[in-house]
Amino acid sequence: MTSTTDPDPTPAPHALWPLTDVRVISGDLELRYLDDALLFELAELAAAGVHSPDAMPFTFPWTRGTPQEVARSVLAYQWGVRSRLSPQDWTLELAVVRDGRVLGVQSVMAKDFTVAGALETGSWLGLRHQGAGVGTRMRLMILHLAFEGLGAQVATTSAFEDNPGSNGVTRKIGYLPNGRDAVAREGSPAVSQRYVLDRTAWDRRAESLRPEVTLHGVESVRTFLGLAPQVTTTTAAS
């Protein structure tokens, strides 16, 4: 009698791509790895509007065009980010989710992070979800992942001077101004304000700005990015 053995099962997604397990949770809000199911929902959200027609908060005007063109721009960008990820140059894109609905995206990116310990954050929310405090919460959550989960020493961000919402969130959290850049935006000059927040400033944030955050799946991501092992815990405000 000939015995047979079952072939090895297909590896779970997280075994091949550990980023799929990343989750950052605070209350009813969650940052979750942007898989294709969430990505198509995000693209539809962008197609419904990200800002008023007379504004442009982005250097590259990907929000211009028909709803279908905007949605396709989101898909193409996100698929491209995945394909270029490496320990030396990476961008982690996380869907902002509440009650099972995608509200926007929160990203963190770095080059030579194992050497410099510096990273940058960026984000956007669907127009219908703006002005309700979500922007501040999701920024605090990604900073918790950056400093407490990944061991960052410095976090930077930027926003055009005529983007009061983004600038307001940044200043509220405690970033310091870090210079200004004159850039071209849709064929006209514009000024982008740069900000910096270091680990010392993050550690002394007021209790009201340090909500309880739970991290999931971070250790495997640290390994994937070439970072030393670190125990991840649930950390309350202090």
Rank of each mutant, 00 (worst) to 15 (best):
P7F: 00
P9D: 09
T10L: 10
H14F: 14
L16V: 11
P18I: 01
T20D: 10
D21V: 01
V22M: 07
V22R: 11
R23E: 14
V24K: 05
V24E: 11
I25W: 06
I25L: 08
S26W: 01
D28N: 04
E30L: 14
E30W: 05
L31H: 11
Y33I: 00
Y33G: 05
Y33T: 09
D35S: 04
D36V: 15
D36E: 14
D36S: 12
F40N: 13
E41K: 14
E41V: 11
L45N: 07
A46Q: 09
A47M: 13
A47D: 07
A48T: 08
V50A: 07
V50D: 05
S52I: 00
S52Y: 03
A55P: 00
M56G: 03
P57W: 06
F58D: 03
W62A: 09
R64C: 03
R64G: 02
G65L: 04
Q68D: 15
E69P: 12
V74S: 02
L75M: 06
Y77C: 05
Y77H: 11
Q78M: 06
W79H: 13
R82G: 01
R84Q: 11
S86H: 11
S86R: 14
P87M: 14
D89P: 02
L94I: 08
V102L: 06
V105H: 01
S107P: 00
V108L: 12
M109P: 00
M109E: 08
A110R: 12
F113W: 12
F113K: 13
F113Y: 11
F113A: 10
T114Y: 00
A116P: 01
A118S: 14
L119H: 08
L119C: 15
E120V: 03
S123Q: 14
L125W: 07
L125Q: 09
L125F: 12
L125T: 07
R128I: 07
Q130L: 10
Q130E: 01
G131Y: 08
V134R: 11
G135W: 05
G135F: 06
T136K: 09
L140W: 02
H144E: 15
A155L: 15
S158Q: 15
A159M: 07
F160H: 06
E161G: 10
D162C: 08
G165I: 13
N167S: 04
V169Y: 05
V169K: 09
V169I: 15
T170S: 05
I173N: 13
G174R: 13
Y175V: 11
G179P: 09
A184Q: 07
R185W: 00
S188D: 06
P189I: 09
A190I: 10
S192E: 03
Y195A: 06
Y195L: 04
L197Q: 06
R199V: 14
R204C: 08
R204N: 04
E207D: 14
S208E: 14
P211K: 01
T214C: 01
H216E: 01
L225V: 12
G226N: 04
G226C: 07
L227N: 04
P229F: 02
V231Y: 00
T232R: 06
T234E: 07
A236L: 01
